[in-house]
């Protein structure tokens, strides 16, 4: 089980801040495939992966990162701090 968080326009498109997902996905990319199948809103949010970043347990990482042992996955657009 993994807690999936969304921020900025991903949150708005999906309409949820967070959801708990039952998954056997091996990598982030596999998890994204499963999330896309959840609803049209999810599919739309994950339609342009060049604009999606991911953090696992609050550390930035890449879509090929393994999910074993991960409790929290967060998806968001490129950051715009400062």
């Amino acid at each position: 089980m993994i807690e999936v968080l969304y921020f900025a326009w991903l949150r708005e498109r999906i309409g949820e801040r967070a959801e708990t997902v039952e998954t056997e996905a091996a990598t982030v990319a596999d998890l994204v495939e499963e999330l896309r199948a959840r609803s049209e809103a999810h599919a739309l949010a994950f339609s342009d992966m060049a604009s999606v970043r991911v953090a696992l347990d609050q550390e930035l990482t890449t879509m090929d990162a393994p999910l074993a042992g991960v409790r929290e996955a967060a998806f968001f657009p490129p950051m715009t701090g400062g």
């Binding site: 900025a8 490129p78 701090g81």
Partner: peptide
Amino acid sequence: YLKSRAPFWKKEHGADGTDWVAA
């Protein structure tokens, strides 16, 4: 570094509506 590696996102509310600031 904090501009593109710290998890902040800006959204602008203006005359033309609202928009997320693109990186």
